[in-house]
Every structure is written in structure tokens, then in C-alpha cells.
């Protein structure tokens, strides 16, 4: 009875929300209106001046990494925070009393010729494409974040077919282990902050790339620094993607080393649930 009452109240509130939202959006300038405030205030500068001021052809990259570079620093921090959080939440403590069994999870290699071959062929291209996406963020869609996700996924693909890191070593045969990935992620975030502080050291504001002594043409300097920032994001994101996958799919020890796993269960046994 109480539950039903609560559901009814929730439905009422949600209905109100929907109607309110509809009423609200009807009041907004029509979609596609070139004379709307959003199209005529602030944003024209990004369109008309980005090339001259930041050297980037891709205006989204210019806004992301330069005009609103501080947001992007925050974004990098958010993704790192997720990796850190998953690490804290899922990493089992070894040495102390055992709190968690390593459990099933993907703690074994997938034995399939088809998958194996596909991954062998695919992964290098994925990794290469990721770097391409990073470097070309200036002139085409893409940038540090997208490249980083792809690179991380490439590492994960390799990791899936080549099996887990050996318990006695920090790194698996291919791709860094979770410990190295985690260190990479923090290094990426630190590098971003370092670029920001470097700009302050040369007399500018935080993240004010223009003052960095990288050349004569300010736009060119900004372009170079933007690439540096994107690379930092790339490193942080690809590290975090690997950490997230490793902690969520496999489980790691607190030191960042893989959990010593005893006999991994065969695939069939895991899929009953």
C-alpha cells in the first residue's frame, strides 16, 4: 500500500516534470535559429577567431583545450577520480586478512582461435588509429580523450586474448599491468597541471599557453601547447580505461599487482548465473 502510494506520487511528479520541460522548451528559441542568443553571443568568437587565436582548424578542439581548457582539466580529473575510486572500491587487500575472494571474473584468457586472430589483426590498428586520432584532433574530429579511449580499448583487446598478467609479474606480456596503467593515469593528470603551472611560471595565467617559450607566433605556440595538453589527456584516459577494465572485469590487489588467481574457472562454469 505504502509502496503503491509512493509510486503514484513519483508518477505524478515525473508527469509534472515532463509537462514542465515541454512547456519550457517551447519557450526556447526555435531549433536552428541563427539569430538565437546562443548563436550570436560568445560563440561567434570561437568560430571566427579560433583559427587566428589558437591555430586549430577544429573549433571544438580550440574551445576544449584552449578557451575552456580549465574545464578539460576538470574532465581529466573526473576520469582519474573514477579510476581511483574503482581502485579503492575493488582492490582487495593482500597480506592482511583476506577480505575478498578473487572470484570468477575474466581472470583467464579467452580460448578462441577466431577471437585471437581477430584481435591480433585488429589491436595494432586500433592502437595506431588511437594515436592518429590524438594527433589529428586539431584538424579533424577527435583529440586526446577519444584517442585515449580507443588506445585503452586496444590495450584491453590485447589483454583479453593474451591472457592475464602473470601473477608474479607486474606487467602482462602485452600491455601494461594495472599498476602501470594507474601510474600512467596519474602521470597524465599531473602533466596537465604541470603545463598549467608552467604557464604561470612564465608570467601568464594558469593554462595560458601563449606565454610559453615555444616559438614566435602565439597561435603556433598555443597549437603546440594544446597538443601537449591533449597528449596528457590521452595518457590519463588510456591509463584509466585500462584500470577500469582491469578492476571491474578481473580484480586486482591493492598494490596494483594482479590478484594471484588459483585455477581459473572454465568459461562454461561462469555462465550459469
Amino acid at each position: 500500500m505504502k509502496a503503491r502510494l509512493r509510486a503514484a506520487a513519483a508518477a505524478l511528479i515525473l508527469g509534472g516534470l515532463f509537462v514542465g520541460l515541454l512547456a519550457g522548451v517551447r519557450d526556447l528559441p526555435p531549433i536552428g535559429d541563427p539569430s538565437s542568443p546562443a548563436s550570436t553571443h560568445v560563440s561567434p568568437r570561437f568560430i571566427e577567431e579560433a583559427r587566428r587565436e589558437t591555430g586549430a582548424l577544429n573549433m571544438v578542439t580550440a574551445v576544449l583545450a584552449d578557451y575552456r581548457g580549465y574545464d578539460t582539466l576538470g574532465e581529466t580529473a573526473v576520469i582519474f577520480a573514477a579510476g581511483l575510486g574503482a581502485f579503492v572500491i575493488l582492490a582487495a587487500s593482500i597480506g592482511g586478512p583476506r577480505r575478498e575472494t578473487p572470484g570468477p571474473g575474466l581472470s583467464h584468457r579467452v580460448d578462441s582461435l577466431l577471437l585471437d586472430t581477430a584481435a591480433r589483426v585488429l589491436a595494432p590498428f586500433l592502437l595506431l588509429f588511437a594515436v592518429y586520432v590524438l594527433v589529428h584532433g586539431h584538424v579533424s574530429p577527435g583529440g586526446g580523450f577519444q584517442g585515449g579511449v580507443l588506445f585503452g580499448l586496444g590495450l584491453v583487446t590485447l589483454r583479453l586474448v593474451w591472457g592475464p598478467p602473470r601473477p608474479d609479474r607486474a606487467a602482462s606480456r602485452f600491455g601494461p599491468g594495472v599498476r602501470a596503467s594507474f601510474l600512467l593515469a596519474s602521470a597524465g593528470l599531473l602533466a596537465y597541471i604541470a603545463i598549467g603551472i608552467a604557464a604561470m611560471a612564465f608570467g601568464g595565467a594558469f593554462l595560458d599557453y601563449g606565454v610559453l617559450p615555444l616559438g614566435q607566433d602565439p597561435a603556433h605556440v598555443r597549437e603546440l601547447a594544446t597538443l601537449g595538453v591533449e597528449a596528457a589527456v590521452f595518457v590519463a584516459v588510456s591509463g584509466t580505461v585500462a584500470v577500469l577494465f582491469e578492476t571491474i572485469a578481473v580484480g586486482v590487489a591493492e598494490t596494483g599487482r594482479p590478484l594471484p588467481n588459483e585455477d581459473p574457472a572454465p568459461v562454461e562454469a561462469r555462465e550459469e548465473g
Binding site: G24, L28, P29, A38, V42
Partner: peptide, 29 residues
């Protein structure tokens, strides 16, 4: 919604531009 009505995200700029906006339902939302 605020961005769609004013085109800005800066608090001072918003405070300056919002009084001129005539779209009560959207503002309320």
C-alpha cells in the same frame, strides 16, 4: 536552458543578460 536563453555561461554575464529575456516558462524551468 540558461545557455539557450542567453548564450552565455558566465555568472556576471548571465546576471546582466537575464533580465532582458522574455520567456517565462523557459526561465522558470
Amino acid at each position: 536552458f540558461l545557455y539557450g536563453l542567453t548564450g552565455t555561461l558566465n555568472m556576471d554575464d548571465l546576471a546582466a543578460r537575464l533580465p532582458g529575456v522574455e520567456a517565462d516558462a523557459a526561465l522558470t524551468a
